[in-house]
Design a protein around this nucleic acid. Structure first.
Lengths: 194, 194
DNA sequence: CCACTCACTCAACGCTTGTTGAGTGAGCGA
DNA sequence: TCGCTCACTCAACAAGCGTTGAGTGAGTGG
């Protein structure tokens, strides 16, 4: 009875193993970058998290910067749609996501954007997209972009306070209650002034 | 004609010189911490900014951490008062300050709070005070503290977007316009729900 | 005027970091 | 089965960091 070459689990080819290792490194890097930021995360720690030699990380990504860049490249889709009211609810839902399990890549960008120039640029681009997309769906007016920017940055601040700083006043409140309190204020912001 | 001992400018005593040097170091440290954050700021850079040997910085402050701690210890006074409407205006005025020349100490805390545990603790404490103070002045209700926290963190996010990330949409807008757009939304947040 | 204080510098330490080049052994193709 | 590929490890490097202990010389106090 000879074993069939590919019936069940056993034989990961060499390329597959390489891909799996690379993915494991990337996942560990994302988690560590999200938790400690760019500077405090060492290549050695990433390698240890993946059960691998530090040199292998370099062989895969060339540079710590490149590793970071690839780790955070998974931008959330910008909110679309045309109805302002639905848009507010959409924003609050995405806030719900933000207050819960924000993906590690986004968390890493958020954490490093104030101290790392590259992360700052990445954040600028991502937030800019969100702002433009929201501004396009707002009632037209000169200050649509300003209003959109204020909504988005306000949400960034709330997320930071809740998720990264863990302010008691925010952390103890259930997400739906936060959304309920925020809804009228956001509606107010998304309507043009008289 | 013998010189009088203390008539005019000429004679800084040894203690005065020491104090002046210490102040110069502290000022340089504040500026660098505000610009680069805790990690990216080196003792050597602080010493160079003060025109001094790195060892002297250690002699004055003992530790990089201690230097940082003393550099950021100048908390802004929390807003007080009892009238909610006046309070909103007060907040917007302080936002005005925030959008303009935020003091280096505050900027340093803001920049490092996401990557440095000590800075995070400092920020938690300072923001907590602001939140409590604002909550006390809000119309009483179960969620006064939540509302206050949302207002304060939203302002933090706006400040970050404007000052540290320099988002074009925010940076190009005059401060008074931002305040005008924000006012109704903040009023909405500071009133209790029906 | 002299001896001492002390603000300040010099040179070096130990450590951690990102990064590199030489090796090694399991697995693939022929 | 042989020989080569290549995923991976080992050991080390150079640079930069915070930090330290021994000096040094201007300036103070008696």
């Amino acid at each position: 009875m000879t074993d069939h070459p590919e019936p069940t689990p056993a034989a990961p080819t060499r390329v597959e193993r390489r891909r799996a290792t690379r993915a494991r490194i990337l996942a560990g890097a994302r988690a560590l970058f999200a938790e400690r930021g760019f500077e405090r995360t060492t290549i050695r720690a990433v390698a240890a998290a993946a059960g691998v030699d530090p040199a292998l990380v370099m062989q895969h990504f060339g540079t710590k910067r490149q590793l970071f860049t690839e780790a955070v490249q998974a931008t959330a889709p910008a909110p679309g749609g045309s109805d302002p009211d639905a848009l507010v609810d959409q924003l609050l839902t995405s806030l719900d996501i933000k207050l819960g399990g924000l993906p590690d890549g986004t968390l890493a960008t958020l954490r490093s954007m104030l101290t790392d120039p590259d992360a700052a640029e990445h954040a600028r681009r991502a937030l800019g997209e969100q702002i433009d997309s929201l501004a396009g769906a707002l009632p037209h007016g000169d200050d649509a972009e300003l209003r959109a920017a204020l909504v988005v940055t306000a949400m960034v601040g709330i997320t930071i306070g809740h998720q990264l700083l863990a302010l008691p006043a925010l952390h103890d409140a259930p997400a739906e209650r936060i959304a309920a309190v925020l809804r009228p204020a956001f509606k107010c912001l998304t309507q043009e002034a008289t």
